[in-house]
Simulated scan of single mutants.
Amino acid sequence: MKKNAFTVIHIDEDILAVNKAAGLLVAADRWDTEAARLDLLIEQALPQLAPHCEKLYAVHRIDKDTSGVLLYALNADAHRALNTAFQERQIKKTYRLLIHGAVSEQHFTVDQPLRADGDALHRTVVDKRRGKEAVTHFTVLETFRRFSLLEAQPVTGRTHQIRVHLAASGYPIVCDSLYGSGKPVLLSEIKQRWHGDIYTEQPLIQRLALHAYQVEGTHPRFGTPFSFTAPYAKDFKSTVHQLQKL
Rank of each mutant, 00 (worst) to 15 (best):
T143H: 04
V125R: 14
I91Q: 03
A27N: 13
F147Y: 15
G182S: 10
P172F: 01
A230C: 06
A120N: 10
P172C: 05
N4H: 14
I190P: 00
D111G: 00
L49T: 11
V126A: 13
I91P: 01
E13Y: 06
R96D: 03
K2Y: 07
Q90M: 10
R89D: 13
F86N: 11
F236M: 15
Q48M: 05
H241W: 07
Y72P: 00
A45M: 03
A116L: 04
G196N: 03
G118S: 08
G23T: 10
P231E: 07
V155S: 02
T229Y: 03
E216D: 15
E13V: 01
L166H: 08
V18C: 04
V174T: 04
R193G: 00
V26C: 13
L246F: 11
E105M: 02
L46F: 03
D32P: 02
P231Q: 10
I99E: 00
G68A: 05
L24N: 08
E142Q: 14
L141C: 07
P184E: 03
V125H: 11
T33Q: 14
Q153A: 12
G223F: 08
I9G: 09
T239V: 11
R115K: 15
I198W: 10
T109F: 00
R145Q: 07
F144I: 01
E88N: 14
D111S: 14
P51H: 01
K93A: 01
V26G: 03
P220M: 11
Q244C: 09
K3Y: 02
Q244K: 13
V155H: 09
G182M: 09
H60S: 08
L97F: 01
L40A: 09
L204W: 11
V240R: 09
L208A: 03
A212K: 14
F108Y: 12
E216I: 05
A36D: 13
S181L: 12
P113A: 13
K93N: 01
H160L: 03
I42G: 08
R145V: 05
V215G: 04
E201Q: 04
I15D: 08
T124Q: 07
L97K: 05
D197Y: 08
S148Q: 06
Q192A: 12
G182K: 08
S238P: 00
V174F: 04
V69H: 04
Y199T: 14
D14T: 04
G101T: 12
K92T: 13
E151G: 09
Y72L: 13
A35L: 06
H165I: 12
T143R: 14
S67Y: 03
A73M: 11
H10D: 04
T139E: 09
T143Q: 15
H137I: 06
E13F: 00
R123G: 07
I9W: 05
L150V: 05
H211G: 06
A134D: 06
R193N: 06
I91N: 00
